[in-house]
């Protein structure tokens, strides 16, 4: 099909339009997505996550520059939150990456969460496929600024960078599971600020208490210096890239890469099942007004939600 051929040939407009169609859930996009599938699964995917304002975009921009020096082609998906009130969104991550706008080997796409709660957009999995089919060597995914729970990024990335900053209330002892557990590499950003040393010390102490099970990967910690000192910033980003490369090597040597690829495949089929089974049912119920009627019944305590759902399931799942 034309679309697929163009995307595999690297056509930017066709790719960005298909990503839009995926976001907007245009039914016709599905046939393109299906045909793209054989061309996917080839890129190395790096997640960049951390609290709002931690410096994720700044680091992503640094990574683009560093990886371009190594002649890698790059796709970036940068996610920002949708306003629950208006449904609109300000997608501002791109500001920090605009110096690469004219580099044809770099494709940057902003995505709004559109109600997705895991720190990503529902479209992210398939947008990754589009970038892979374009032949991007490396895909960087910047999540929304997250707390502890929005960790869907582990379902998509091979390596996850967690960006921490001093003095933002995310000191190590207050950090619970979640964010800390998904880190393959830690970056302490704004190391020019007071408290960076302290954060580093605490993080090291925390990592020291981890019981190294067999084949344990100890997440390295990179201090990202002051972005206002270009040379030192670049040096630290180069170090970060090196740590990611080491992590990749570890994934290969330990067999964990297969595990991650497996996890990703499980999520992909899970999402596709939801899209194929749950969404059409929900749409039918919504359009017929039945959903509203059922909501009313539950509200008035005339029926319990489980019985209603079972009745729907019996009707649709034959």
């Amino acid at each position: 099909m034309e679309t697929v051929k163009k995307i595999c040939g690297g056509d930017i407009r066709t790719a960005s339009r298909l990503i839009r169609d995926i976001e907007d859930k245009i039914p016709a996009a599905k046939s393109s997505i299906k045909k793209l599938f054989p061309h996917t699964g080839k890129s190395y995917i790096i997640g960049i996550t951390g609290a709002p304002g931690a410096g994720k975009s700044t680091i992503t921009d640094g990574l683009i520059a560093e990886l371009r020096k190594k002649n890698k082609t790059i796709g970036v998906l940068a996610i920002d939150p949708t306003s629950p009130f208006s449904g609109g969104a300000i997608l501002g991550d791109r500001i920090r990456m605009q110096r690469h706008a004219e580099d044809e080997a770099v494709f940057v796409r902003s995505l709004a969460t559109r109600g997705s709660l895991g720190g990503l957009s529902q479209a992210v999995g398939e947008a990754i496929h589009v970038l892979e089919a374009m032949g991007k060597d490396i895909i960087l995914i910047e999540t929304v600024g997250i707390g502890q729970q929005e960790i869907d990024i582990i379902n998509h990335a091979h390596s996850v960078i967690v960006v921490l900053v001093p003095g933002m209330g995310d000191e190590v002892q207050t950090m619970k599971a979640g964010l800390m557990e998904i880190a393959d590499v830690f970056a302490i950003n704004k190391a020019d600020r007071a408290g960076a040393k302290q954060l580093h010390t605490e993080l090291m102490a925390m990592l020291n208490t981890a019981t190294p099970a067999e084949g344990y990967w100890r997440p390295p910690v990179v201090m990202i210096g002051n972005i206002y000192e270009a040379l030192s910033f670049e040096g630290r980003i180069a170090e970060l890239v090196q740590k990611i490369e080491e992590h990749y090597q570890y994934l290969l040597d330990s067999g964990r890469l297969a595990e991650r690829i497996n996890r990703k495949a499980a999520v992909e089929i899970n999402d596709a099942l939801k899209a194929a089974i749950l969404e059409p049912v929900m749409n039918t119920l919504r359009e017929s007004g039945e959903l509203a009627a059922m909501t009313e019944k539950v509200k008035n305590r005339q029926a319990d939600p489980h019985s209603l759902a079972e009745e729907v399931a019996q009707r649709f799942l034959k």
Binding site: S86, I90, G92, I95, Q98
Partner: peptide
Amino acid sequence: LARCFRDAGFEVIYTG
């Protein structure tokens, strides 16, 4: 303007 567009329900890409 970007905020106003967001409040109108648009997705706004701001490039600085």
